[in-house]
Design a protein around this nucleic acid. Sequence first.
DNA 1: TTCGTATGCAAGTACTTACTTGCATTATAA
DNA 2: TTATAATGCAAGTAAGTACTTGCATACGAA
Lengths: 211, 211
Amino acid sequence: MDNSKTAVTRNRLLEAAKEVFAKAGVNGATTKEIARVAGVNEVTLFRHFQSKEQLLSAVVQQFTAMQAEALAHQEEWTQDLRDDLRHYALLYNAMLEEHEALIRTFIGEARRHPEAARRIIYETTQPLREKLITYLSNSQKRGVVRQGVDLRAAVDIFTGMLLGGMLRRSASPIPLGYSSESYLETSVDLFVSGISTIKSRLEHEEAQHNI
Amino acid sequence: MDNSKTAVTRNRLLEAAKEVFAKAGVNGATTKEIARVAGVNEVTLFRHFQSKEQLLSAVVQQFTAMQAEALAHQEEWTQDLRDDLRHYALLYNAMLEEHEALIRTFIGEARRHPEAARRIIYETTQPLREKLITYLSNSQKRGVVRQGVDLRAAVDIFTGMLLGGMLRRSASPIPLGYSSESYLETSVDLFVSGISTIKSRLEHEEAQHNI
DNA sequence: TTCGTATGCAAGTACTTACTTGCATTATAA
DNA sequence: TTATAATGCAAGTAAGTACTTGCATACGAA
């Protein structure tokens, strides 16, 4: 009973809230509109969530759980640094673009809802983040990644590039002078070249030359 | 007459609006609060700006003008790629941190106010951006920056790293595993190493070794 | 001094918002 | 069938919101 009826309504409300918060922002979102999108009466919303604020934190909870789940299944490393990071970049960028509007809302609301911001930044990306750090650390031991680089910072720099690119791209319909693909490819290229040992950079350029 | 009296009040209103928009977001900001912060009557606000929306666009206008001005005076290139980019990074990062709250507001509002977003992204950074592209292009001719890199994308990637870092840092009071300084230094290091020719990377490492 | 302009103040308008109450209806489980 | 729980519906409350109007006051320029 807790399943079918109640849970369905609750999930519809959560989905609708996510959508309306993304479109209108936290302040701009109204419980009336959320209920309308969910296809339920506004009163029902308040029977499920005691306030708009609590609805927001439920949305955050569900979103972080979903994203952590979605990003957790990244296990296949080819041990080719460039390929692996490109794969990671594509995955991460797709996630950013899919949830662009909601991410914007949360960035804007971060100071007013620091706990929500913390959860979104950490709980969603932490597992994958740790894996990447371990991966780079191993690459360091293999002599592919150079010494003396703060790997924790490096990983966040990598994702920061992608986030920054998404924010610029989607903010305005103005030509940036490069394509979205070029931004991604250049991000991977610069990062890999920058973090590699000279030896492995030389090997890469040689391989490129032989093609 | 257009100067002293009216202009002073207008500027106080613009400053107050900037502050309140930054703190409360566009939707959360009330004309009553803006007037209070400015120290004028709410009616006076509407005598200067016909609507809250127009006040917002005036704030955007003033902000872009100020920032473009502040960032325009970057002329001294030492021709050492690393030093120059570090200098640029510090300048840009200081600007990001100073206006963190307002930047968050605008990022969150970008879809609802695309024209404002466009102006902030473009008009504030365009001049410096072009200068950096020219600079990197010259470095390319000098053999310091390698060929085959999309320089326009590269410049935005560089600023994207810094923006991403600021957004992560200030969103939450949680330890990231590295310091703000390390993030900046690693950003510069990775970018410079990544965009340099192998030759100039070798020279740099040699110089480091001799210290 | 006089005149025009900028501002303050009190009140009001029309609308929206989060949230509540009471009761009727439906569906489900025992 | 009957009791229980979830939902819909109509209405309402209390507070806030952007924005307006009318009038009084102060101040600077001519």
